[in-house]
Write a protein that binds this DNA or RNA. Structure first.
Lengths: 208, 208
DNA sequence: TGAGTAAGTTACTCGCGGTAGGTTACTGAC
DNA sequence: GTCAGTAACCTACCGCGAGTAACTTACTCA
C-alpha cells in the first residue's frame, strides 16, 4: 500500500529507504534536537523513531541503546569542537594570540551549538554508564590543547602547576560559556577577553 | 508478630517506628549514600526503601518523587557548604586571607563529602525537572560569596568584569575539586594555593 | 529471476516510578 | 481500661518507556 488516499501524497520525501550511513546521520541530527528540547530523560526513543519516520528497533539496531545514541551524538560534537579550536590556534603565531584565538573559537562554537552543548555539559547526570565519562574525555582532549599552550606560554612553570592551571582554565571556560547562555549581552569577544586577561594577570590589575 | 524465631532477634534497632522527622533524616542519609554508590539512574526507590527497612510508599509520602528525594539531599548539602565557607571566611581579616580560607574550606568540604558531591556536580543531567536548577542555585549562593570578596579585593573593577571573574572562579574551583578526586597527591592546601595564586597573578609569574 | 542481504516492522517482555486503599500501633480524653 | 483519632506503615496494583524476538519487504547483482 503506497498511499491510503489516492491522489494525495502529503509527504513524498518521508518513509523512503536510506542507506545505513545516511539513516544514522539523520537519526543523530534528530536525536540531538530532541534531546535538546526535552532533556535526556524527557526524551523517549519512540519519539525519536517517529520523527525519523522509522520504527524504534531501527534505533536499537544502529545505536544499541538510548545511551549509545546519546554517546554517538556527543562523539560528533566532541570531534567538531576539537577541530574548530585546533584549527583556530594553528593559525596563530604568538602565545598570546594562540590563547586568544582558541578562546574565541571555543566560545563561538558553544554559541552556535549552544542548546545541544548546554545539555552535554549540564546533563552528564543522566546517570548512564559512560556519558559522564565521554564528557570527561572531551575535557581531556581540550585540556591537552591548553596544557600545550601553557608549556609554550610558561616553560618554567612546574608540571604540577601546569596541570592544575589547565584544569582551572578548562573549568573557567566551561562555566563562563554556560553563564553566557543567560547573559546575551556578553559577546564572544567579551568572554574571550575576560578569560585571556584573567589567565595572564589574574586580579592584579585591579588591586590597589 | 515481634520475632519469627523466638530467642533470636538479629536486628533489634531495625523496623522500629520512627517519627517523621527522624525517618526523613534517615532516608536522606541512606539516599545520599545509594545515589553516590549507584548514580541517580542506577538507584531504585525500592532499594532505598529496603535499606531504610521501610516500604516504598513511605518515600513517596515524605518526598513526593525520586527527584524530590534527590533535591532534598542536595538542599542539605548546599546549606552545609554555605555554612562552612561562610564561617571560614568570617574568621579572616585581609582580603588575601579571606580568599585563602574560603578556598581551603571549600576544598576540604568537597574532600570529606567527595562522593556525594562529585555526584551532585557531575550528575545534573538526570534530566529531572529541577535538579540542574538546584545545582545552579548552589552555585549562585557561592557566587554571591565570591563576588563580595572580589568587590572588597578589587573595588575599582567594573561590574561586568566582577561578574565574569566570579563565574571564572566558581568554574575553576569546581573543576579543580573534581579533578582532585583522581589525583590524591594534590592536597587541599595545594589546590587552594594554586587557586589563590592564579586568582591574584594569573600566569604572569611564569612568563619570561 | 531468484538467492542473499540490508532496511524495516509488529508485537511483545520487564523493570521501575508512582499510587490507591487498607492495616497497625501510638496518644490522649473520659 | 477503652476507645476515637491520627500518624506510621503495608500489600497490591498501574502505566510508561527501554529493550528484544521473530518476522516481512525491497533492493542488488550473478
Amino acid at each position: 500500500m503506497k498511499a491510503a488516499t489516492p491522489g494525495a501524497d502529503p509527504e513524498p520525501p518521508r518513509r523512503r529507504r536510506m542507506s545505513r550511513a545516511e539513516r544514522e546521520r539523520q537519526m543523530m541530527d534528530i536525536a540531538e534536537q530532541v534531546f535538546t528540547e526535552r532533556g535526556y530523560r524527557g526524551t523517549s526513543m519512540d519519539e525519536i523513531a517517529e520523527r525519523c519516520g522509522v520504527s524504534k528497533p531501527m534505533l536499537y539496531e544502529y545505536f544499541g541503546s538510548k545511551d549509545g545514541l546519546l554517546l554517538a551524538c556527543m562523539g560528533r560534537a566532541k570531534a567538531e569542537l576539537y577541530e574548530v579550536t585546533q584549527k583556530a590556534m594553528a593559525g596563530a603565531s604568538t602565545p598570546d594570540d594562540i590563547l586568544w584565538r582558541g578562546m574565541v573559537a571555543y566560545f563561538s562554537f558553544i554559541d552556535s551549538h549552544s542548546r545541544p552543548f548546554a545539555m552535554l555539559l549540564q546533563e552528564p547526570l543522566s546517570g548512564p554508564p559512560k556519558t559522564a565519562e565521554a564528557i570527561e574525555e572531551t575535557r581531556r582532549q581540550q585540556s591537552e590543547l591548553i596544557a600545550g599552550v601553557l608549556r609554550t606560554f610558561a616553560p618554567d612553570a612546574p608540571a604540577t602547576a601546569v596541570a592544575a592551571y589547565t584544569q582551572i582554565i578548562v573549568g573557567a571556560c566551561e562555566r563562563l560559556a554556560l553563564w553566557r547562555a543567560g547573559h546575551p549581552e556578553l559577546t564572544v569577544e567579551d568572554a574571550a577577553r575576560h578569560m585571556t586577561d584573567f589567565c595572564r594577570h589574574g586580579l592584579a590589575p585591579y588591586l590597589k
